[in-house]
Computed example of a mutant assay.
Amino acid sequence: MLKTDPRAAESRLERSVASALWAISAACAEREAPSVHAARKHLGAVYGETRLRRRLENEARTA
């Protein structure tokens, strides 16, 4: 079995967690950027309209 210094292992774990938290924070900040936020809202609206149109078309076919 590989023996490692517990302090070194703890330090690597802390750096790994810090790196993961930084990446999450950066992704959240990017998602909330005004241009990205507006684009996401627009795409969501288009997606919703498309789903509604398809549902209405399907209902019209079965009616």
Results as ranks from 00 to 15, higher is better:
Met1Ser: 08
Met1Gln: 11
Met1Thr: 08
Leu2Asp: 04
Leu2Pro: 01
Leu2Ala: 14
Thr4Tyr: 10
Thr4Ile: 12
Thr4Val: 09
Thr4His: 05
Thr4Cys: 07
Thr4Ala: 07
Thr4Asn: 11
Asp5Leu: 09
Asp5Ala: 10
Asp5His: 03
Pro6Tyr: 02
Pro6Ile: 06
Pro6Val: 03
Pro6Gly: 04
Pro6Gln: 03
Pro6Asn: 06
Ala8Ile: 04
Ala8Leu: 05
Ala9Tyr: 02
Glu10Lys: 14
Glu10Gln: 10
Glu10Ile: 02
Glu10His: 05
Leu13Gln: 11
Leu13Pro: 00
Leu13Arg: 13
Glu14Met: 10
Glu14Asn: 04
Glu14Ala: 07
Glu14Pro: 00
Arg15Ser: 15
Arg15Trp: 09
Arg15Ile: 02
Arg15Lys: 15
Ser16Gly: 08
Val17Trp: 01
Val17Phe: 01
Val17Arg: 05
Ala18Ser: 03
Ala18Lys: 06
Ala18Glu: 10
Ala20Tyr: 04
Ala20Phe: 10
Leu21Gly: 01
Leu21Ala: 10
Trp22Ile: 01
Ile24Pro: 00
Ile24Tyr: 01
Ile24Gln: 07
Ser25Val: 01
Ala26Asn: 12
Ala26Gly: 02
Ala27Gly: 01
Ala27Thr: 13
Ala27Arg: 15
Cys28Val: 14
Cys28Phe: 08
Cys28Lys: 09
Ala29Asp: 04
Ala29Met: 05
Ala29Ser: 05
Glu30Thr: 09
Glu30Met: 06
Arg31Ile: 04
Glu32His: 13
Glu32Cys: 03
Ala33Thr: 05
Pro34Met: 06
Ser35Trp: 05
Ser35Thr: 15
Val36Leu: 06
Val36Lys: 10
Val36Met: 06
Val36Thr: 12
Val36Ser: 03
Val36Pro: 00
His37Pro: 00
Ala38Phe: 10
Ala38Asn: 02
Ala39Phe: 11
Ala39Asp: 15
Ala39Leu: 13
Arg40Ser: 02
Lys41Tyr: 01
Lys41Ile: 06
Lys41Gly: 04
Lys41His: 12
His42Gln: 13
His42Asn: 09
Leu43Cys: 01
Gly44Glu: 11
Gly44Arg: 12
Gly44Lys: 04
Ala45Lys: 06
Ala45Tyr: 08
Val46Gln: 11
Val46Lys: 14
Val46Glu: 13
Tyr47Glu: 06
Tyr47Trp: 05
Tyr47Lys: 11
Tyr47Leu: 04
Tyr47Thr: 02
Gly48Asn: 13
Gly48Phe: 00
Glu49Arg: 15
Glu49Ala: 15
Glu49Thr: 12
Thr50Gly: 07
Thr50Phe: 13
Arg51Val: 13
Leu52Asn: 07
Arg53Pro: 00
Arg53Ile: 08
Arg54Asp: 12
Arg54Phe: 05
Arg54Leu: 03
Arg54Ala: 12
Arg55Leu: 15
Leu56Asn: 10
Leu56Ser: 03
Leu56Trp: 12
Leu56Phe: 06
Leu56Arg: 14
Asn58Glu: 09
Glu59Ser: 11
Ala60Asp: 05
Ala60Gln: 12
Ala60Tyr: 02
Ala60Glu: 15
Thr62Glu: 15
Thr62Arg: 07
Thr62Val: 15
Ala63Phe: 14
Ala63Gly: 09
Ala63Tyr: 11
